[in-house]
Design a protein around this nucleic acid. Structure first.
Lengths: 111, 111
DNA sequence: CTGAATCCTTGTCGATACTG
DNA sequence: CAGTATCGACAAGGATTCAG
């Protein structure tokens, strides 16, 4: 764990971004949370193929690096909501660029 | 291999982008080639820590997906130059977004 | 429902040696 | 110089089980 801990921040800004979101699952988690706050189960269902272990790991990691908020409701059955912090929301710029590029690339493919 | 082969293109544009450049090394290769055309050895030296095997794999893969051009000079000793295709160059938008975001994040860190 | 803990499979990567 | 081939180490991820 602690891949994101801010000890020795890479020199290159791109590497910083990579460290925080340069990961398939993290990018998709951000995509989901950019739309709306979601519960753990909703995220799991939305991210087809992810195991709850990996989802938990990534959410914790993103919480540590200040991208994600975790709100626990003291009730039975448990309810935990995840949302993006301000910093996390600012990743929408990167996300949008990826979205647009992917869309263009798609159009260029010989169907 | 063939992670990039265009068989079943994901529905979500973001996933397409992820498939093509959502990888630490690929992103850094693109960063390098956005600056200038480079020879194999130059790339290897620039990307500290990468093994030549992995570098070759990624370059091949990016060539397959149409992001990178490979130009071989028939001479001894061999000389191979890598550059970005037009599609590859268009990734600069994504790269810039990542660069800027990483830069901002860095500023926000408690030094 | 959320999530911690185990086990175990898989593939990615690094190191090394060898070739045109 | 620019690869290919092989091997082994290691970590990421999946499946399953158990708990609050």
């Amino acid at each position: 764990m602690n891949e994101n801990v801010i000890k020795t921040l890479p020199k290159c800004p791109v590497e910083i971004t990579l460290m925080l979101m340069g990961d398939k699952w993290k990018t998709l988690i951000i995509r989901d949370l950019l739309k709306e706050t979601k519960r753990f189960g909703e995220l799991k269902k939305s991210l087809t193929g992810i195991s709850q272990k990996v989802l938990t790991q990534h959410l914790r990691s993103m919480e540590e690096s200040g991208l994600v908020n975790r709100k626990v409701y003291a009730q039975i059955p448990p309810k935990v909501e995840y949302s993006l912090t301000e910093i996390g929301k600012s990743l929408s710029v990167v996300h949008d660029a990826m979205y647009k590029w992917g869309d263009e690339y798609k159009k260029m493919q010989p169907s």
